[in-house]
Each structure stands twice: as structure tokens, then as C-alpha cells.
Lab assay of single mutants.
Amino acid sequence: GAYRMKIYDRDELRGQMSELTDDCISVQDRFHLTEIHSLNVLEGSWILYEMPNYRGRQYLLRPGEYRRFLDWGAPNAKVGSLRRVMD
């Protein structure tokens, strides 16, 4: 299947937008971000990790809009890595 997600540095799907279609071992290295404040999962399911290298707390992201970090259940906006959930 296809995988696509848009990430934003501000809440409510605002601010600088970056797009992912594959795994990202370090959000900071690739996008120069340490925080993601909202996101829109367009295709596929993903796991968001608090730390790089797929470590730390993890949150399942199904397709849909997440307008603030509380929407995916996190206590803050800190994001380290993102990985696709393969079928």
C-alpha cells in the first residue's frame, strides 16, 4: 500500500509543512525539527516515536487529521522518528 503524511511545526495544520512517504529515523536530521505540533496522515498507518532511531514512547497514527499533539495522545510535541506500519 501507499504511505503519505504531512507534518507541521505549528498546531491546527499550520506553519512549515513537510511531507513523508517513507520511514524517517531522525526527524531532526531530515527536517530540522525536534517538535511536530500537528499532522495529517493521508495514506497508511504510522508509528510516531518520541526519540530518534525508533526509540522512546510510541504512538499509532491512523489516517486522519491530528490538530495538536494531544490528538495522538502525547504529553508534548517532541518527535524523534516516524515509521510506516507495514501490512
Rank of each mutant, 00 (worst) to 15 (best):
L20N: 15
M17T: 04
R84P: 15
R55S: 04
P63D: 06
M51E: 09
F69Q: 13
Y8N: 06
N53S: 07
D11I: 06
D11F: 04
M17P: 08
D71Q: 04
G44I: 00
M86P: 11
H37M: 06
S26Y: 13
C24P: 02
S81E: 02
K6E: 12
H37A: 08
S18T: 08
I25Q: 13
M51N: 11
S26D: 13
R83H: 15
S45V: 10
R30E: 07
N53T: 03
V79C: 09
L20A: 14
F69P: 11
A74I: 00
M86K: 06
S38L: 00
V85Y: 12
E50F: 01
M5V: 09
R30S: 10
L70E: 11
G44K: 05
D22F: 06
L42C: 13
V85W: 10
A2G: 10
Y3I: 15
Y8E: 00
D71E: 07
D87V: 04
H32W: 03
D11A: 04
F31D: 15
L82H: 01
S45N: 09
S45K: 10
A77V: 14
D9L: 13
K78W: 05
F69M: 09
E19S: 12
W72E: 01
Y8M: 03
A74Q: 03
M51G: 09
L82D: 02
R67F: 04
I7C: 09
E35N: 10
L61D: 00
N53M: 04
R4C: 14
G80P: 00
F31Q: 15
L48H: 00
R4M: 07
E50A: 04
Y3W: 07
E19R: 06
R30P: 04
H37N: 11
V85R: 05
Y54R: 01
T21E: 08
R55E: 07
N76L: 14
P75N: 05
Y66E: 00
A2E: 12
Y66L: 02
E19Y: 13
R62I: 03
F69R: 13
N76F: 15
M86E: 11
R4D: 13
N40T: 09
R55Y: 05
G15I: 04
I47Y: 09
I7H: 01
I47G: 01
G1S: 07
P75C: 10
V85T: 10
A2V: 11
R10E: 13
M51V: 02
M86V: 09
G56S: 01
N40A: 09
S81V: 00
G73E: 11
G15V: 05
F31Y: 11
L39A: 04
D71A: 03
A77T: 05
A2W: 09
Y59Q: 14
R10M: 08
L39F: 05
E50S: 09
L60P: 11
R62E: 14
Y8D: 00
T34M: 05
G64S: 03
L42N: 07
Y59H: 03
I25A: 10
Y49G: 00
G80K: 02
W46K: 02
A2N: 15
T21G: 08
L60A: 07
Y59P: 00
N53H: 09
R57I: 05
E12R: 07
R68A: 11
N76H: 04
Q58M: 04
R10Q: 10
C24Y: 14
C24Q: 15
R62C: 04
S81T: 02
Q16F: 13
L39Y: 03
D29F: 07
N53P: 00
R67N: 15
T34D: 06
G15N: 15
G64D: 05
D29M: 10
Y66W: 10
I25P: 14
L61S: 01
Q16L: 07
P52L: 02
E12V: 11
L33D: 13
A2I: 15
I47V: 08
R4K: 14
D29R: 07
A74Y: 01
Y49D: 00
L20E: 13
L20Q: 14
L70W: 06
R67A: 10
E65V: 14
N76I: 10
D22M: 13
G56F: 01
V85E: 06
R68E: 14
G80R: 05
L42P: 10
L33P: 13
Y66N: 04
N40C: 09
K78C: 11
Q28Y: 10
G64P: 00
Y54K: 00
L42A: 15
Q58N: 06
D11V: 13
M17W: 12
V85G: 09
H32K: 15
N53C: 04
P75R: 04
R14S: 12
G56D: 04
S18D: 06
T34Y: 08
D87P: 15
I47A: 08
K6A: 11
E35H: 10
Y54S: 03
L82V: 08
S45C: 06
N53A: 06
K78Q: 07
R67H: 06
R57G: 05
L39Q: 09
M5F: 02
G1F: 15
I25N: 07
M51S: 10
E19A: 04
R62W: 04
A74V: 01
K78T: 04
S26H: 11
C24L: 11
S26T: 15
S38V: 01
G80Q: 05
Y3V: 14
G15K: 04
L61E: 00
P52G: 04
L39K: 00
Y8S: 13
I47F: 12
A2C: 14
A2L: 11
S45D: 14
